[in-house]
Design a protein around this nucleic acid. Structure first.
Lengths: 205, 205
DNA sequence: ACCTGAACACCGTTCAAGT
DNA sequence: ACCTGAACACCGTTCAAGT
């Protein structure tokens, strides 16, 4: 009942022109959401900024939430890419060093566009989280589990799947909390999150 | 610019009749938000359910967010009461036992009306968290710090203020996450949260 | 195949008028 | 002092008409 409309794009843009239209709509949406926040994030504002008519927006997105979901999917994919590459670098490193690389990537992603990312995190909750983004989250979790597997001995639990889920939840809570409070000091945030995660994953130093 | 309107009530209801009106509006608001979610949470729906005209609602609340803020303040106050009484019981108990009492109270509060509480948590983020609710959060944090003070020796850090903040963030993340996934098993959730917090606060068992 | 924009339904908010 | 409800501005969404 809540969702009579799907959040997936209405039509696959088959021609090059329409692919560009979708591109321009999403770029405009990210800008509007980043600069004006949720209050100014209006389908008409997005259409205007994109330089297309409101009808064109609805040709590719069944509703406003679908635009938001697409932004979430993009952000999530880019975070996953960054984390995957950080995990490559981190493999073979000691836990603290490796974790620092991962957290650094996550913090950098969040602080690149703090307002936008925070809003997207909220909307992801509102839309039910597991919507367009479940696949990416699973991949991300799988990456993290493999990373934890390399540190078998130092961890407080052999259940790396649970550790990974909880660690993700903890990191998100701390990073979102900092972003919410307007704390934009990346190094400080990185240090705090790493300290907390180490405490959770490996016990006291 | 974002908030030209305050979120505080527009007028203190001075007479008994108007106090009852405010009461009936807030009760109606909680019911509408719990049953229909954010989508059906309409000022007109609240007024109708409350049996007053829309004008009466705006006599006491400057805008819709002010109604939400009042619901958040109520929920937060009731959680704080429950936690304060749990801390009374928990004082003198070993960390694990005491923490279980605290987490039990928090979980019970959340699962009493899962949909409503989850929505309020989200809205609290959206409204900037520190709005109407900062005082209660500070009191709650202070309670928790005092509780941690009794377990000086077993904790991983002497900075109980930071431990309390992070522990709150972690507990909220895990409880909200479970509520979000529809996991309504209170005992299981309680056990998981306690396990995670113990790991964070006191290191591995 | 893609785009346009007037039109419709609905929601937040106000305010002149009532008791 | 408190309440009412029509009215206004604005937003999400649709759809007939265009190229």
């Amino acid at each position: 009942m809540t969702a009579q409309h799907p959040l997936t794009p209405r039509r696959q843009p088959s021609q090059r022109r329409s692919q560009a239209t979708v591109e321009v709509i999403l770029t405009a949406a990210a800008q509007v959401l980043d600069r004006t926040g949720l209050a100014g994030f209006t389908t008409n504002a997005v259409a205007e900024r994109a330089g297309v008519s409101i009808g064109s927006v609805y040709q590719y997105f069944p509703n406003k939430d679908a635009i938001t979901a697409a932004l979430i999917a993009r952000s999530s994919a880019s975070l996953r890419t960054a984390l995957a590459s950080a995990i490559d670098q981190a493999t073979g490193q000691p836990l603290h060093t490796g974790l620092t690389l991962l957290v650094r990537a996550a913090v950098a992603h969040q602080l690149a566009r703090p307002a936008l990312e925070r809003t997207l995190d909220q909307q992801e909750l509102r839309l039910g989280l597991a919507v367009a983004d479940a696949a990416n989250l699973m991949l991300l979790r799988a990456d993290l589990i493999r990373f934890l597997d390399h540190h078998q001995g130092t961890l407080t639990s052999p259940d790396h799947a649970s550790l990974a889920s909880d660690a993700l939840a903890i990191a998100r809570a701390l990073i979102d909390g900092a972003a919410c409070r307007g704390e934009l000091d990346a190094q400080r945030l990185e240090r705090d999150v790493v300290r907390t995660l180490i405490a959770f994953l490996a016990g006291p130093s």
